[in-house]
Design a protein around this nucleic acid. Sequence first.
DNA 1: TAAAACAGACCAACTAGTCGGTCTTAACTT
DNA 2: AAGTTAAGACCGACTAGTTGGTCTGTTTTA
Lengths: 190, 190
Amino acid sequence: MNQIVENVGTSKGGFYHHFTSKDELLFEIHDTFITHVLEKGIYAYETHHSPTQKLKAIVKEFVNVFGLYKAHISVFYQESTYLKQQYQRSVKDKRDQFKQIVMRTIEEGKKSGEFREELSVEITTMAILGMVNWIYKWYRQSGANTMDEIGDIFVDLILHAVLQTETISKDNYKEILLDLPFFAKGNRNG
Amino acid sequence: MNQIVENVGTSKGGFYHHFTSKDELLFEIHDTFITHVLEKGIYAYETHHSPTQKLKAIVKEFVNVFGLYKAHISVFYQESTYLKQQYQRSVKDKRDQFKQIVMRTIEEGKKSGEFREELSVEITTMAILGMVNWIYKWYRQSGANTMDEIGDIFVDLILHAVLQTETISKDNYKEILLDLPFFAKGNRNG
DNA sequence: TAAAACAGACCAACTAGTCGGTCTTAACTT
DNA sequence: AAGTTAAGACCGACTAGTTGGTCTGTTTTA
């Protein structure tokens, strides 16, 4: 608290005039970015037809939020370990909503035949959530890749993981999947 | 501390007779499971020839540790946020070693032609570490899948993500990749 | 001039860690 | 076998520092 208050340039009194507790602040912080991803996720889900496009858009937005709200997310994960029950529940609620969108998308992909039939919807979803959520642990502004590049790479990895194997090679997904830079293509194996 | 000591059924005095600080306990806890994965990882790396087999074995061992040391890992992540610098460095050291093994494996896979050339070694590695590390956040003993199943699914997802697209369909990887249960194959789309 | 915004001294509860002491164990002596 | 002793294991009241949070006031705004 002292640190928060100091860094923000305010005082205990000032802070508690606006928030009823530290937990509320934490909740508000979480709500800021989770609401953002959730809205973007829903929008992505609703504006695209194919599960592939949906998944691509959802993942990109999801990754993107780690660029936009890096500080929020770090603080939240660092301080939220002992969040009061009521707040934990609201937090979990919104996270579950996002999880549902991803699950529904994968389910649809399986039904439509775009994604592999043998996928476990639940575990695949958790794998995606995990790889993206973990970003806050390792991403540094100074790193070699921008958040946008990371998003593209993640989309590429995830789609390769879920798409029907046969369809990948058919060049249907040129625009979505990664490729070598043109000047490196000469060395290609195979 | 009070809680730890109480739950362990000892006392402050007893505890500090064996540890110099809480951080040391935390470090010891982390070291227990990180040493385990690291050894298993190195062994897996050294005993297999192909990068594909290496990666499979490494991921399986990595996932497995979350079954063996669930409690350790949860405690560590919950309490380690403010670990003293010296301990943080040793922790990071071992984690980096494991990361290196994964990176080297992917690099080798690219060189051998088994893995896709266009993969970003670093980001792919972080994706793998992320999806597995995140397990501690969601895995419940009571869940639908055993740790072993999750391991297999993760291996399947990761290999589909990294393997050369052409080779996947060639049945070379029947033993490694997942398939539908035989009784469901009749419904397969074409 | 009243209400909202803010300040900061203060507080209770809790934190990791200490310290003087007791109990347990096992080797050593007689 | 019984007695001695010393070291390691263990105890828990206590402390210094920190935590989130309160309360009485002052300043700012409209």
